[in-house]
Design a protein around this nucleic acid. Structure first.
Lengths: 322, 322
DNA sequence: TCAAAAGTGTTATCCTTACACCCATGT
DNA sequence: ACATGGGTGTAAGGATAACACTTTTGA
C-alpha cells in the first residue's frame, strides 16, 4: 500500500524593521542556491498538532518562539516547483507567523530578507514601480499577444487587467498570489523555468528583474502569505503584533503602508484608528522624530472582545499624502 | 522512520434546494452512527494534485462531478474528534464545493441533509431562533459562571458576547467556526463528549437540541465551510454557482439569505445587484410565482474580468423586509 | 376583489475622500 | 527662520438603511 506521504511544515515568518517588511529565510534550498523558508517534516510521533510541529521546527532552525501563527494553505501537487522527487510524495502545509523582534539566536543559519526582493512589483509606495512599467507590463503584453486572437487572447488580457490593474480595474493590493501565478504561467519568474520542464536551474540573484527566486515553491507560499496578511489587516488588528509595545501613529501608519505596499492618507488613517478605538495614549512622547515630538500610543487589546471586526483598514485607493 | 502519515481528502458539498442549504453526506461514519462528509485517502500514485484526488473520490462515492472547488483548511491534531487511531497519523485536508443539481447517481449511499440540522443556531432568517434564546444562551451563561470570578470569567463572557452577539456586538454571520468551537469547549456539542475523554459515544439524532452530530470532526469542517462561504459571498459572485441558469431576483435574494442565515432588505439588495452589474435580463418571465410574474435574469460571467471584487454583499444587519 | 408577490421612488444618515491649515521641535 | 514631521477642522460626494407606495397576476 503506497498510501503514505510525508507532510512538510513551512513557515513564512514576517517582521517589519525600518519601514520594510522582512521574511526569515534559511540558506540553501534543496535544488539550487536559492534561499528557502524554514521548514521541516511533521513528526507524527512527537508533534501532537501541526502548529506545535511547526513551532518546534522553527525553534530548531532559527531559535525563535513564534507568537501569532495562522495556517495559510496546503500545497500538494506532485511536482511542486522544481525538484520533482520521485521517491516520496510530499505535502506542504504553509503557515504565516508574525514576530516583533528580529534578533536571531547565534549559530543558526537564518537571515532576514526584504519581502519585496522576491516580489518587487508589490511595492507601490513610491507609485507604480519602474520595473512594472518598463519590464513586466511589456512582457505581459507580449504574452497576451502570443495567444491566438479571439477568446483566448481576450481571456488573457482580462486576467492581466484584473490582477495587475489597468484603466477600469484599479490595483488590488490583496491579489498578490494571482499576480505571482500569472507571472508564473507567463514564464516570467525563474521558478517557472526550472521545475517540470527543461529549465535553467534558477539563480539566487535576480538578473531578469522579476524578483529573486526562492527554493521549491516557496515564493508561491510567500505570495500567499503577503496576500493573506494584506487582507486581514482590514478586519483584524494584526499590525500590532509587528510593532513595539509603544509606537507613534506615524509608525503605525508606516507599518501598514509597508505591508500594503501603498501610501495612505494621514488624517483619514488616523480617523479610522480613532473611530475603532484601537489605541490609547501612554502619556509619553517620542522626541527623536526629526520634527515635533510625537505622542506614543499602545494597542488596546480589549477591542478584540468588544467589536466584531477591528482592523486598520485599507481604503479603496487613498493616494499619497506625502 | 515513522515519518509517514495518511492524508484524507474531505469534501463539504453544498447545494441550495427549496430555500434551504444542503450538504451531501454519506452514511455511517467510522466511530458511531453519525453521517459523514464524503472523504477518502489521497493516493499518492494516482492523484497528481490534491484537488484531483478529491474529485476522484467524490465521484466514486456520490457519482458527482464537482464544479467550483476551493480548499478550506488542513486539520492535523492527533486526536481529531473521536476515534483516536493509535496506529496511523491522519491529516485531513478539507474542501468546499458548490453544486447546482441535487440528483444523485443511483446506487450511491449519499444523501442531502439540511445544513442547519447540524448548526441550527446559524439560521436567523426568522429572527433569533428559540433554541438560542432558551437553551444555548443559558447554557453559555452557566459556562461563564463556572469560571473563577475575575479575569477568566470576563474572558469567557467577552468571547461569548463577540461570537454569539449581544448588546454592543451584533451577530456576525461569518463567525460560524468561532461559535462551533465555543460550544465545543463549553461541552455543549455531542462531539466534545466522545473523543479523547470519557464520553457518551454520540448520537446521530439531536436529543440535547444543540444540532445533530457528524462523524469525526466533520461538523467543525462544515462550520468552517459555512463561514467561508458566507464571507466570500460578499466579494465573489459565488451564489450563481448554486442557482439555475435563469432565475428571478427574489430567488437570488432567497439563496443569499439562506446561506447568510439572515433576512435582507429587498430594494437595497436589488440596488446592490444592479450597481454591480452582476446580472442581465433574459427577456423571459417566470409566471408561477404566486403573484405577478417575475422577470428572469442570468449571471453576467464577464464581471469577473471587469471589476476587482464583485459580490452580492451582506450589509451590516439589514433587518427583515416583510 | 383580494391576496401575494413584483417592482419603483425618495429621503435621512453616515462614511469616505479630499481639501487646507496650524503646532512644536531641532538645526 | 525654516525645515521637518505632528496634529486638526471641515466640507463635498457617495453609499447605506429605511421609509412607503404602485403594478400585475392568480384564485
Amino acid at each position: 500500500m503506497p498510501r503514505e506521504v510525508t507532510v512538510g511544515l513551512h513557515a513564512t515568518i514576517v517582521a517589519v524593521t525600518g519601514a520594510e517588511p522582512r521574511v526569515l529565510t534559511v540558506s540553501g534550498g534543496a535544488d539550487d542556491g536559492a534561499p528557502a523558508l524554514p521548514f521541516g517534516p511533521l513528526d507524527p510521533d512527537r508533534h501532537r498538532t501541526l502548529e506545535l510541529g511547526l513551532r518546534a521546527w522553527v525553534r530548531g532552525q532559527t531559535g525563535k518562539d513564534l507568537a501569532h501563527v495562522e495556517q495559510l494553505y496546503t500545497f500538494g501537487d506532485r511536482d511542486r516547483g522544481g525538484a520533482a522527487d520521485e521517491r516520496a510524495r510530499v505535502i506542504a502545509v504553509a503557515y504565516l507567523a508574525l514576530v516583533r523582534e528580529r534578533h536571531l539566536a547565534a549559530g543558526h543559519p537564518a537571515a532576514w530578507q526584504a519581502v519585496y526582493r522576491f516580489l518587487p512589483w508589490e511595492d507601490r509606495r513610491g507609485g507604480e514601480p519602474a520595473l512594472l512599467r518598463d519590464r513586466i507590463r511589456p512582457a505581459l503584453d507580449a504574452w497576451i499577444a502570443a495567444a491566438p486572437a479571439g477568446a483566448a487572447r481576450r481571456e488573457r488580457r482580462g486576467r492581466a487587467d484584473i490582477t495587475f490593474g489597468s484603466g477600469a480595474a484599479p490595483w488590488d493590493a490583496e491579489r498578490v498570489l494571482d499576480r505571482y501565478e500569472l507571472l508564473y504561467e507567463a514564464g516570467l519568474v525563474a521558478e517557472a523555468r526550472r521545475g517540470g520542464g527543461p529549465g535553467d536551474g534558477g539563480a539566487a540573484s535576480d538578473p531578469a528583474g522579476f524578483g529573486a527566486p526562492l527554493a521549491l515553491d516557496h515564493r508561491r507560499i510567500l505570495a500567499t502569505a503577503l496576500g493573506r496578511l494584506r487582507g486581514k489587516l482590514k478586519y483584524r488588528p494584526l499590525v500590532f503584533e509587528l510593532l513595539p509595545e509603544a509606537f507613534t501613529l506615524l509608525q503605525l501608519q508606516r507599518t501598514v503602508e509597508t505591508l500594503a505596499g501603498v501610501r495612505l492618507h494621514k488624517q483619514n488613517f488616523r480617523r479610522l484608528v480613532e473611530r475603532g478605538a484601537l489605541v490609547e495614549g501612554t502619556g509619553r512622547v517620542e522626541p527623536a522624530t526629526g520634527g515635533r515630538p510625537a505622542k506614543l500610543f499602545r494597542f488596546r487589546r480589549e477591542v478584540q472582545h468588544e467589536r466584531p471586526a477591528p482592523g486598520v483598514g485599507l481604503p479603496g485607493l487613498p493616494v499619497a499624502d506625502s
